[in-house]
Amino acid sequence: MLFKTHGDKQLKIAIASGKGGTGKTFVATNLYSVLQQNQVSSILIDCDAEEPNDHFFFKSISKTDKEVQVNIPVISAESCIFCDKCYEYCHYNAIFYLPSLQQIHVMEDLCHSCGACSVACEHNAITEKKKTIGTVTTYLLSGNYKLIESRVNIGVYSPVPVITSAIKEAEQQGIIILDAPPGTSCPFIHTVNNADYVVLVAEPTPFGLSDLQKTIAVLHILEKPFGIVINKSDIGTLAMSDFIQKENYDLLLSIPFDRSVASFYSEGKIMAEREEKWKEIFENLIDKIIETACK
């Protein structure tokens, strides 16, 4: 088994899918379980900060929370001479500015913490304060394994700072599994951009194929190597495997649909812990990932 000897080198693997609900978390949690069972140095990071769900699948001994904070400007109306400059510098319309009524303040939900207004102000009217936008939780699991979870607060413009903090939290060596957020926009990009290799989990339906193609387009832009797992491979159409074959992409694994797996999974349980067959499937998948990622 390749992965047993790989534990001392760092390898970040993102598990992603354009569409939600394709089995991304299923693959990520089972992979992590297999690594634990084989005592491979590894960590799982839940980067789906809007809907983090990996914690359902592991029993934790303890957990520690760390708040993720950003800098938000505070404008003193007393020191302000209403010169327009910060208002002009702000690209996000986050400064409410009414010189006629001597009103100026920051709309915190709109602020992207870029610091442009602080640079703009020449009258020391702008200071900065901390604002909490989410939490990074580290769950300690048995055997000194850890699950790191990013969770963004409701109403925050972007989960990206919370995701990046969670990824930074894992400094150790070994295999780092990133459970990526759905979609193809910023949160997804910032997650996969931190990875050495991306595993795309897709369903062979027309919707699933279209999402897979969109996701691959982004990975091409980012120049990230990737492989594909087809989940529920026996439902839907053959269009997806034809596409993968035609484009000569790496098909890492096909998982047939199994209703009992779906029910078992729904309760936050891991197949690789229950059945030897599934343990082997995911051990082989890890091997295949390392083989493809390092070639």
């Binding site: 809007e50 809907e51 963004v152 409701i154 413009y157 972007s158 979609g183 999974y265 729904s266 309760e267």
Partner: peptide, 25 residues
């Protein structure tokens, strides 16, 4: 999907919201 700005934009000022869920944790 999710809970971010795009969702808020999608539901702002509608007459009703339908929440589709599935029986998983």
């Amino acid at each position: 999907p999710g809970i971010g700005c795009p969702v808020i934009s999608a539901i702002a000022n509608v007459d009703g919201v339908v929440l589709v869920t599935e029986p998983t944790l």
